[in-house]
Amino acid sequence: MNTKKLLYSKRFAYLVYRFIRVYSACLRLRVINEAPWQQHVEAGGKVLLCVWHQQFFSLIRPFKAYAKYRPGLMISRSRDGEMIAAVANYTGWHTVRGSSSRGGRTAMSQMIRHLQENRLGAHILDGPRGPAGVVKNGAVKIAMDSGARLVPVYVEADAKWIFNSWDRFFVPKPLSRVRIRFGDMLPQIPRTSDTAALETWRKSLEDRMRPGLVR
């Protein structure tokens, strides 16, 4: 097997997943305000967790606790997306493949159906290519058509490595304090085809999320 095939193989993805599990165990993790949205899901409601692309590394290990809900996650069809999707699947998440640039409409339909059946999903708001800190329309449309409530997720780390990537992707340093904070659920988005109303909801979500972006 050549190097490129190895890097995108399921065997390598499993090794990455195991490394993240072990590495994340070295972090001093604190989860804040988790109960309200979990109670909503367990009472029959639907929730779409929203996070910035730069912060998802820290969520991989703790989000395994939600595997019991069989949650859904939309991942791009890129080669890098293959790796991320495989790691997410090992974590117990059901991945739907597509993005705004490729296969987005089909993937959104699948995510909506998955939320209606399983009640929990997550969405990377500015992925896979950015711009960083700009919420795309997908999360609002998925929430509107599925009846899910949007829940912001913020990740903070006292010490971290910040990469020179489009999103300033970061990885917490070993033994650093990491806080995963769930914001309050947004009101349910009424069904509408009014583009101005959709933009209002998109901007409202962006305004709530941006203060948590690591610059």
Rank of each mutant, 00 (worst) to 15 (best):
68 K>L: 02
112 I>R: 05
165 S>K: 00
146 S>Y: 10
162 I>L: 01
32 I>L: 13
57 F>T: 02
130 G>L: 01
85 A>Y: 03
115 L>P: 09
114 H>G: 00
33 N>I: 05
39 Q>I: 04
171 V>M: 14
141 K>R: 12
58 S>Q: 06
27 L>N: 11
168 R>A: 12
74 M>Y: 08
167 D>C: 06
77 R>G: 08
172 P>S: 04
169 F>H: 09
125 L>N: 08
153 V>A: 03
47 V>Q: 09
214 V>E: 05
204 S>V: 03
125 L>Q: 06
37 W>M: 04
85 A>F: 08
37 W>Y: 12
201 W>I: 00
137 N>K: 10
65 A>L: 10
80 D>M: 03
166 W>C: 05
38 Q>A: 11
7 L>R: 04
160 K>T: 07
75 I>E: 07
66 Y>T: 09
191 R>Q: 14
199 E>M: 08
148 A>Q: 01
163 F>R: 06
205 L>P: 06
121 G>Y: 11
195 T>Y: 02
18 R>P: 00
118 N>L: 07
109 S>P: 07
199 E>F: 01
183 G>Q: 09
124 I>Y: 08
204 S>L: 13
198 L>R: 02
64 K>F: 06
192 T>D: 12
188 Q>S: 10
57 F>M: 13
210 R>Y: 06
55 Q>N: 15
149 R>D: 02
100 S>D: 01
165 S>W: 05
69 Y>N: 03
101 S>D: 12
19 F>I: 01
129 R>D: 15
178 V>M: 05
25 A>I: 00
19 F>G: 06
112 I>Y: 10
61 R>C: 03
30 R>I: 07
99 S>R: 03
41 V>N: 02
171 V>D: 08
82 E>P: 09
64 K>E: 15
81 G>L: 11
102 R>C: 09
26 C>A: 12
122 A>K: 03
21 R>I: 11
84 I>M: 14
162 I>M: 09
22 V>G: 08
177 R>H: 12
95 T>S: 11
162 I>K: 02
20 I>T: 04
123 H>Y: 15
213 L>V: 07
39 Q>K: 14
169 F>Q: 09
182 F>H: 07
174 P>K: 06
151 V>A: 09
31 V>R: 11
54 Q>F: 00
140 V>D: 05
36 P>C: 05
81 G>I: 10
75 I>T: 02
35 A>R: 13
190 P>W: 08
15 L>H: 01
3 T>D: 00
212 G>M: 02
41 V>A: 15
72 G>F: 04
4 K>V: 14
77 R>N: 15
19 F>M: 04
75 I>L: 07
68 K>P: 01
78 S>I: 03
132 A>W: 04
139 A>V: 13
33 N>P: 02
87 V>M: 01
183 G>D: 06
16 V>C: 13
